[in-house]
Amino acid sequence: MNLQLLAQINSFLAALVLLTSFAMLSQRKINSLVTLFAWQGLFLSINTAVVGFVAAKHHLYISSLLTLSLKVILLPYILHVLVVRLKIRKEMETIVNIPTTMLIGIALVIFSYHLTAPVREMSTLITRSTLAVALATVMIGLLMMITRKHAVTQIIGFLAMENGLFFAATSATYGMPLVVELGVALDVLIAAFIFGIFFFQISTTFDSLSVEQMESLREDN
């Protein structure tokens, strides 16, 4: 396969990752959010493998497999089990209405392109243009955490940010050293267990997973 085509596949996958980010931003149902998160992980995993092939970096295949098993299979499965066990069906209220969040999201994408411009100029990698998308994914994940007042959506936003960071590492430098990638994956895994425990603690203490009830620790009380 020629390099041109692979570069295009890379850009296409980056577009899909960004698309899933926006889809997550507009989605109110938690079940669909989990599915979207799994899709994002899948695109990311394929992209990592493609980049690994282009750059002939074998450790990227390992990261690709790691992403596949962790972010496409394990984490969505854990989230799904939690959603079923905790009987979450209700649609989520958002603080800011969805069209507005989408507009903010677009602004964040433009901002990311602006911010990563010096990196793009310096880089010689074929993946350099996707770094902006990666930063945008991080920012949109952050936006999701801010605008949603539900514990599960906040966690999905958090994990989407993690996806963005992983993507950034792949596109800026063909992946971080393996020891770092493994360590980050381990941290995500531990975090997954912790938020699992948290969901149970929150739902038994507050009777629901809405974060809005957690308002007692403020300065003005």
């Binding site: 991080v138 952050l142 955490m145 514990a151 906040q154 958090f158 940010m161 993690e162 960071l165 975090a191 912790i194 938020f195 948290f198 603690q201 929150i202 203490t205 507050f206 974060v211 957690m214 007692s216 620790l217």
Partner: peptide
């Protein structure tokens, strides 16, 4: 309830920060 709220805040805010 307060302890869980504090821990959740700690988890989320430091998670975002460290990202």
């Amino acid at each position: 309830p307060n302890a869980i709220e504090a821990a959740w805040k700690y988890f989320i805010l430091c998670g975002v920060g460290i990202a």
